[in-house]
């Protein structure tokens, strides 16, 4: 079981509008994998299909080697316990405090004592760089960046093996965004995580992403490491990576 996520010949349609027409990609264990593309290229739709929120028109998606089309309810439940999803705007439960947001999964899925759960909450908050005093606050009392961190803490509560991140650094200040990158790459190293992210952040792509796929024209037009991508002549790649600004940036770092 080398590939953690594998997408084969995926076709997505909304009514008569075709979003994906034969998307293929393979994400290996331990990788930090990015999905790139213009807005409207169907990145979020692809992610939603992988995390079983949307059903594709045709094609196969394998997670941990299992085709998600014919999963038993029990297997589906098990897979869902082993992955974590960080939504773009956090999606914290507004009626629960931050502590209870993080404790939610622990309380539902484990029989840990309250004390141990408390220790874990503190640990996770510290890990994502939040002060322990936010524990008793509610999501609407936090700023956008703090919400994102708290949501990551919730995502990490069960120590998932596979992490999906939807634009993890959007809405963070540059310093915070680099810290986030470092955190993600550390987590990958230590916890053996596989990370799949949608991102537009060039620094993230340059610093931590191992491999990526470019979605355009309804399919994957380029994939591989940054160097491999840069060889592509596709207009989107040209526009995204080979402009004046990026050239200076990539040369400097």
């Amino acid at each position: 079981m080398k590939s953690v996520v594998k997408v084969e010949n995926l076709v997505t349609k909304f009514g008569s509008k075709v979003i994906h027409n034969g998307v293929n990609l393979e994400i290996e264990r331990g990788e930090i994998y990015a999905i790139l593309g213009e807005s409207g290229a169907g990145k979020s739709v692809l992610l939603k299909e992988i995390i079983m929120l949307l059903k594709p028109a045709s094609g196969d998606i394998y997670i941990f080697g299992k085709n998600i089309k014919n999963l038993t309810a029990k297997d589906e439940q098990r897979i869902k316990k082993e992955w974590g999803v960080l939504f773009q705007f956090g999606a914290l439960f507004t009626s629960l405090s931050i502590a209870n947001n993080i404790a939610f999964l622990l309380k539902e899925y484990t029989k840990l004592s309250k004390k141990m759960i408390d220790y874990i909450i503190d640990e996770k908050l510290e890990m994502v760089g939040l002060d322990a005093s936010v524990k008793y606050l509610y999501p609407h009392e936090l700023s956008g960046g703090m919400i994102k961190r708290a949501a990551l803490a919730r995502t990490l509560a069960l120590d998932p093996k596979l992490l999906f991140l939807d634009e993890p650094t959007s809405g963070l200040d540059p310093v915070g965004a680099r810290g986030f990158d470092e955190l993600i790459s550390n987590l990958r190293d230590i916890l053996d995580l596989t990370i799949v992210m949608i991102t537009h952040d060039l620094d993230t792509i340059h610093n931590i992403v191992d491999e990526m796929s470019i979605l355009a024209d309804k399919k994957v037009v380029a994939s591989g490491t940054l160097d491999e991508i840069l060889k592509s002549n596709h207009p989107f790649v040209q526009k995204f990576f080979k402009n004046e600004y990026v050239n200076t940036r990539l040369r400097n770092v």
Partner: peptide, 14 residues
């Protein structure tokens, strides 16, 4: 020793 498997021993150990 994972989050889902330590609940049986955790109370006793602490």
């Amino acid at each position: 020793w994972r989050v889902g498997t330590i609940d049986k021993i955790e109370k006793k150990l602490l």
